[in-house]
């Protein structure tokens, strides 16, 4: 791999200028679109935030979780329900939901965090299904399978969708910048170390369980915030938006964009949601195409599209990227003594 030369391109993309600029462009373009396209664009923006969070957990820390659609859902439900049942204003409901979900989500996963790889994945799957069950069945609070109407927010005389769009865009841009900055510090290194070689990480002083917990908590908070925004966008919250199929779509977004890259978190959702729109009519074809994409990317392009694009634009695929197919860290987690013959 080539060494990074500090080119103008990398300096510009490295700082906060480019993301903010792109956000402004998107804002201007978005406000000029018809309501339906704007709705779609806002969906993309919200999912970008969600995938940034999921990427922190899956891409950078290498932990597989099926729970994020559920966390997204609880965020949406909590924000909506706080407004509906308790008349809490939107902004406060959103913050409360985020903190609450982060706490509850982390507590739920805590016992499972000692596990790794497949076992953790299955445990999160169980949690996700349980949450879905609660959302459907706790009808007194959650209004059951039919869902409920969440109040819309309007700012400065803009309509519901436009407001949601701008709020989401600002939040997502800030989230992007903050997370990117975080990943450049020792926290980022810890995440990657835990992903690539947890035993070596521990031998260097990294508290692996604490790091996994932090990755999970951070991604849960982001998912919850995105969920709250989603409730405002849709104006309506129902369990079917947060089920396993949605979770798998999120996984596809993450993998297609590029596990372990910030740019991938933007490309993935955009591509998948646009494709989803095109294939809206035929559920069967949608499933076949997305399923094949997932298989294809895992087999042939495990680092996703982002590094490919970076390489095309002349930059070296920075150390953010995953060099190999997504690893559990299985050989790394396995203690060296097990790899050798016993005794030595």
């Amino acid at each position: 791999m080539s060494e990074t030369k500090p080119s103008l391109l990398s300096v510009v993309t490295g700082s906060w200028v480019l993301p903010v600029f792109i956000a402004c462009v998107v804002a201007v373009v978005g406000l000029g679109l018809n309501p339906y396209l704007l709705f779609l664009l806002t969906r993309i923006v919200i999912f970008v935030m969600l995938i940034i969070g999921l990427n922190v957990l899956m891409g950078y820390s290498g932990q597989l979780s099926f729970a994020h659609a559920a966390l997204f859902g609880i965020g949406a439900y909590a924000t909506g329900l706080l407004q509906v049942h308790l008349d809490v204003p939107f902004a406060i409901a959103l913050c409360a939901a985020t903190v609450g979900v982060m706490g509850v989500g982390t507590l739920m996963v805590l016992p499972a965090l000692r596990l790794s790889g497949i076992h953790l994945a299955i445990a999160t799957l169980a949690i996700a299904q349980a949450v879905h069950w609660v959302l459907v069945n706790w009808t007194s609070v959650t209004f059951g399978a039919g869902g409920f109407r969440a109040p819309a927010i309007r700012l400065f005389g803009l309509d519901k969708t436009e407001t949601a769009f701008l709020v989401a865009l600002v939040s997502t841009t800030i989230c992007y910048l903050l997370v990117r900055q975080l990943l450049r510090t020792s926290f980022g290194r810890r995440f990657i170390a835990v992903r690539d070689n947890a035993v070596a990480a521990a031998a260097n002083g990294v508290n692996v369980t604490a790091v996994k917990t932090m990755a999970f908590a951070l991604s849960a908070a982001i998912a919850a915030f995105a969920g709250g925004l989603y409730s405002a966008l849709l104006g309506f919250v129902a369990p079917e938006s947060f089920n396993l199929e949605q979770m798998i779509l999120m996984k596809i977004m993450t993998v297609v964009g590029g596990l372990g890259t910030m740019v991938g978190a933007v490309i993935g959702p955009a591509l998948v949601i646009v494709l989803q729109e095109q294939l809206r009519e035929s559920q069967g074809w949608l499933e076949i195409i997305f399923g094949s994409m997932l298989i294809g990317f895992v087999l042939f392009l495990p680092s996703g599209l982002a590094p490919l694009l970076k390489r095309l634009s002349g930059q070296s695929a920075r150390t953010e990227t995953v060099a190999l197919a997504p690893r559990t860290g299985q050989p790394a987690d396995r203690k060296p003594a097990v790899m050798n013959a016993e005794g030595n």
Binding site: Y60, R189, I192, A193, R195, D196, N197, V199, A200, A201, A203, G260, T319, E320, T321, V322, A323, L324, A332, P336, M339, N340
Partner: peptide, 11 residues
Amino acid sequence: FQTSLLCSGLS
């Protein structure tokens, strides 16, 4: 470690 595995995701 015997099988020195540097973190491949880091420089």
